[in-house]
């Protein structure tokens, strides 16, 4: 058994038990504010949302993230070069620098870079949301089942979880992506396969502590079936830290997917993908055509940063000790 299973709850102990994470230490669970039952009204003074709104850093990051999401959703309507965004080349205007027509220049096939970036935001958003959603679904299921049923079920599931956790981050994703072959769907699967254990652990810890709460005991006593208890009564209260984690993970997902794309394990062309754009744009940088890799890199950094900052601030405001920071 990993000692962290037996450590005091993180909120008292601080770090141990939280950290082994993709750079994003987990939220303080268990005793954390919003994890209580019943949930507090959204946005009320003193609530997490209220604190978040007061964080300039958080609100700034949220603004940027919103722009990113809007760009992704409305990409085709935001550019006159939607076809180029979808991948239709125009060789007569290849590798043009930024100008009045092509604000961010054109790529090696004469496609407007701004359009490609907008459509790349789509890819990034799909991957990020896909990875996090898939990881949450698997992780929450495994974690809840392990935590609720305990005993050998817990033992088996947690040993499996530990095994997946034993891979250094990225490595398992690379392995799986290499085995499945390059495509958008496989990128999502590959990353999710290596991420779900983090959620499984978190949910399990939550479920373990919630299970002892009187209200759970009460519904157990009146004979409500297990699956219904898990879904109706335990999970809703165990999910708060999961959502915090999920938010913070969106940035890491964008970054990880870019890494896979860079080594040729990303979506297939002509799908617009920021990681691929850097990989392919690298070769033009030396000869002075910096705008392909340059702008794609900026897009990744800005997107990842905004999600990471949101994650940071959310984590702070959901933890009573650090509330009101930022």
């Amino acid at each position: 058994m990993d000692p962290s299973d037996r450590l005091p709850p993180p909120s008292r102990f601080g770090l141990r038990g939280l950290p082994r994470r993709r750079g994003l230490p987990g939220v303080a669970g268990g005793a954390g504010g919003d994890a209580g039952h019943p949930a507090r009204r959204l946005g009320a003074p003193g609530s997490s949302v209220w604190y978040f709104r007061r964080s300039r850093l958080g609100m700034g990051a949220a603004g940027v993230a919103l722009v990113f999401v809007v760009a992704a959703i409305f990409a085709p309507w935001l550019t006159p070069f939607a076809d180029a965004g979808r991948g239709v080349p125009d060789l007569s205007v290849r590798l043009q620098g930024p100008d009045g027509t092509y604000w961010l220049g054109t790529d090696d096939l004469g496609r407007d870079m701004l359009a490609r970036l907008l459509f790349g935001a789509r890819t990034a958003l799909i991957v990020a949301v896909g990875v996090v959603a898939l990881s949450v679904v698997i992780g929450v299921t495994v974690g809840a089942v392990a935590g609720y049923f305990g005993r050998w079920v817990d033992e088996v599931l947690m040993r499996i979880t530990d095994t997946f956790l034993a891979f250094p981050p990225l490595l398992l994703a690379v392995l799986v992506a290499a085995a499945l072959g390059a495509s958008l769907r496989n990128t999502v699967i590959a990353i999710a396969v290596s991420w779900w254990p983090w959620y499984a652990r978190q949910v399990r810890a939550q479920v373990l502590s919630l299970q002892r709460r009187p209200y759970v005991r009460a519904v157990q006593a009146i004979g409500v079936p297990s699956h219904s208890i898990i879904v109706r009564h335990v999970l809703p209260n165990a999910m708060a830290p999961v959502w915090v984690q999920a938010t913070a993970d969106l940035g890491a997902a964008v970054l990880t997917a870019a890494g896979l794309s860079f080594v040729g394990l990303g979506p297939r062309p002509p799908t617009a993908d920021w990681g691929v754009m850097i990989a392919e744009g690298r070769q033009y940088v030396l000869s002075g055509q910096w705008w392909i890799a340059g702008f794609a890199g900026i897009a990744i950094v800005v997107a990842a940063m905004s999600f990471n900052l949101i994650g940071d601030v959310v984590r702070d405001v959901t933890d009573p000790r650090t509330r009101g920071e930022g």
């Binding site: 991948g87 239709v88 080349p89 090696d108 096939l109 390059a182 062309p269 002509p270 070769q283």
Partner: peptide, 19 residues
């Protein structure tokens, strides 16, 4: 071939024409 820039570019141009 993965990583063959020109083969990929050719594919993308041809794809657009065939479409």
């Amino acid at each position: 071939d993965v990583g063959e820039v020109e083969q990929e570019q050719i594919g993308e141009v041809w794809k657009a024409l065939l479409a």
